[in-house]
Amino acid sequence: MPDHITRTNLRTHRTHGWPHRMTASPASVVSARKLGLTFQTNDGPVHALSDVDLEVEKGDFVSFIGPSGCGKTTFLRVIADLEKNTGGEISVNGMTPEEARKARAYGYVFQAPALYPWRTIENNVALPLEIMEYSKAEQKQRVQRTLDLVNLAGFGNKYPWQLSGGMQQRASIARALAFDADLLLMDEPFGALDEIVRDHLNAQLLKLWATTEKTICFVTHSIPEAVYLSTKIVVMSPRPGRVTDVIESTLPRERPLDIRETPEFLAIAHRVREGLRAGHSYEE
């Protein structure tokens, strides 16, 4: 029982205190140690996350993959200070999540586009800029630039409901890119879109990641999507939500869409599938 072993390890670890607390490398953007989160519900406690250890380095593209309810969203929300961990340690850019949030360290792309219907696309992208009090000229320039980046130039004057689902999600990505956050948190941003649109957006996202040099944490349900996009794939399993495998991708940074037919790609996909299966059989 591997779980038993890690538990024992943990205990011995704890008796020794926390030697690693500030040893996160300077390039580390997200650093989680024995992170745990338990929701107190009416039906008793729900262990959404337990004993999660993870380092996200600057410039990484990290995918989180696992079945529903394994705590992917919860982990992202803890990084974003939308949820508080109940155990362990986490730092974002060397700060607590709350400090990082107040320093506007990340842009969050939710599962739904969450564009405000009373604002045009342009003004939706300008929303964080208004809140962060950028000058009008700066706002205009950044809106233009980020809309170009997600191929939405010319749609700035439309209202969100006049656009397709894929375009709306691209606008919400533009909104997260508009200000100077180096970390992008994306929770199944393309989950509701069909596969053709999704392939297209994945390729665009990779290009965007290469040009902007952001660090991206990306939640997905899809194995090919995870393998195609990531430099690092975090495989998770539920009840309690935990990390079962962390796979460093050997694929080059430059990835045309047909890289998905190469043996190297398939080998990584296979390992992810194995990791998911291991997490699953463990349940029974």
Binding site: R101, R104, G107, Y108, Q111, Y116, I131
Partner: peptide
């Protein structure tokens, strides 16, 4: 909606800003 409010929180938006803009 709760996502919209989380969005404002992620921008570290203040009470009055969230009130006026959302």
């Amino acid at each position: 909606g709760s996502i919209e409010r989380d969005l404002m929180r992620s921008y570290a938006s203040g009470y009055w800003q969230t009130l006026c803009k959302l």
